[in-house]
Design a protein around this nucleic acid. Structure first.
Length: 410
RNA sequence: GCGAGUGUCGCCAAGCGGUUAAGGCCCCGGAUUGUGGUUCCGGUAUUCGUGGGUUCGAUUCCCAUCACUCGCCCCA
């Protein structure tokens, strides 16, 4: 037997109503906030992710599905910010009066060990806003995320925010941090020793309790809490917090929040749920003002976020699929087919008994189908040119002319 | 890449060295070719993830392997 590949999943009928619910909510919330949907290809040049996502990230170093086609290196997208930025540049969207507000949803691919809340093919929904460097834009994007989560019934999630500063202050901070850590570097885990060289900020994210305890020492804490952020960045962050306060959005400032993708600067944020197990982030995002130039475009400010749809699904209750309006009980399949077509064309969700064996079976199927009405079309009715309609909940039944079926049911 | 747990029907499972491999759900057929989900009767695993080994005998014990699940890492 050929089975679905490790880390991939079939989304079956019993779950699909939930996906439709989330997708509908998404469209409604985003369209109201004037975001436009964008659909980019599922594979891109490998180079796009190497440059865009960053070659110090795990995503690029060990999680990409990369293959060669006629000497070209292609990769199944592991995330969609790089693809959207590529499209933004390629289609000259800088000519559009800012902000350029885009949203997307679709499958992403990362080669990782699957576990709760993590698959190799998974789905993300995300937004990206280009062209505005003002902190109001950061607030707008976070506000959109919260509005969407609220719309699907998620109200008690935790928002964490932080500011990484700009290029300059980041370089500054990196040095301060390295200096503070240096005397006890040997005690840190192997990963952190590597991070110390390649991307020291990521040490702050380490989950190892030992590393966290060294980070908690006074010298390191002083470095973390020092005012490494320049005045402009500080002002940007303060304004953002003010806007969030005005919106009534609760948040925690987490100085250790750095996020794993290389392209972020200034604002970064994460939305977490404590009922998800260990993969508890539902949303992650931030500002990435240098990515458009990194990928060859004009200098363009940008902010965005992405959410893992499977993690959202895990948090919301089941959604009932819409039920059938009518189930046709009839042994003459010509009549069944014609009547089904007629009812469907008139907006009724209709099913019929394709076996047409006998009335008892037909009724049983009508009942099991959960339809509101059984539409009975037997020999007697066909002769008389009539139809019997039975309300399956109230058990009332009437025989009417064919033209009156719709008024009876509606 | 590392660590732990679990594999008996579509689903939930019992059996733990000798059974004809329980039971329940779902599904299918009949009682029942014009009216109800109930009820009753019947049907659905030559085989216990796969391959070896131990044994007179293995679903049961041992080894390997595969798959799934959870955790580390990382991320959404």
């Amino acid at each position: 037997m050929i089975t679905a590949q490790k880390g991939t999943k079939d989304i079956l009928a019993d779950e699909i109503a939930k996906w439709h619910f989330v997708e509908n909510a998404m469209r409604e919330v985003f369209e109201k906030a004037n975001y436009k949907e964008i659909r980019t290809p599922i594979f891109e040049a490998t180079e796009l992710f190497a440059r865009g996502v960053g070659d110090s990230t795990d995503i690029v170093n060990k999680e990409m599905y990369t293959f060669d086609q006629k000497g070209r290196s292609l990769t199944l997208r592991p995330e969609n910010t790089a693809g959207v930025v590529r499209a933004y540049i390629e289609h000259g969207m800088h000519r559009i009066s800012p902000p350029v507000k885009l949203y997307y949803k679709g499958p992403m691919f990362r080669y990782e060990r699957p576990q709760a809340g993590r698959q190799r093919q998974f789905h993300q929904v995300g937004v990206e806003v280009f062209g505005v460097d003002a902190p109001s834009c950061d607030a707008e994007v976070i506000s959109t995320a919260i509005a969407f989560l609220n719309k699907i019934g998620l109200n008690d999630l935790e928002l964490e925010i932080n500011s990484l500063g700009c290029e300059k202050c980041r370089a500054n901070f990196r040095e301060k941090l390295k200096e503070a850590v240096k005397p006890m570097l040997e005690k840190f885990c192997d990963d952190c020793k590597m991070r110390y060289e390649k991307n020291p900020l990521r040490m702050l994210d380490c989950k190892s309790p030992e590393c966290q305890s060294y980070l908690a020492t006074e010298a390191v804490q002083n470095a973390i809490n020092s005012d490494f952020i320049c005045e402009d960045c500080q002002e940007h962050f303060e304004k953002l917090k003010g806007y969030l306060d005005a919106l009534g959005i609760k948040y925690n400032v987490n100085r250790l929040l750095v996020r794993g993708l290389d392209y972020y600067n200034r604002t970064v944020f994460e939305i977490k749920s404590n009922s998800l197990g260990s993969q508890n982030a539902v949303c992650g995002g931030g500002r990435y003002d240098s990515l458009v130039t990194t990928l060859g475009g004009q200098p363009t400010a940008a902010v965005g976020w992405a959410m893992g749809m499977e993690r959202l699904m895990a948090l919301i209750p089941d959604v009932n699929a819409s039920s059938l309006d009518a189930y046709i009980v009839c042994q003459d399949l010509n009549e069944s087919l014609k009547l089904a077509k007629y009812l469907r064309n008139n907006g009724l969700k209709t099913e019929f008994d394709m076996q047409g064996k006998n009335f008892s079976k037909g009724f049983e199927k009508a009942l099991k189908s959960g339809a509101r009405f059984a539409v009975i079309l037997g020999e007697d009715e066909i002769k008389a040119g009539k139809v019997t309609i039975k309300n399956l909940t109230s058990k009332e039944q009437v025989t009417v002319n064919k033209e009156d079926i719709l008024t009876q049911i509606i």
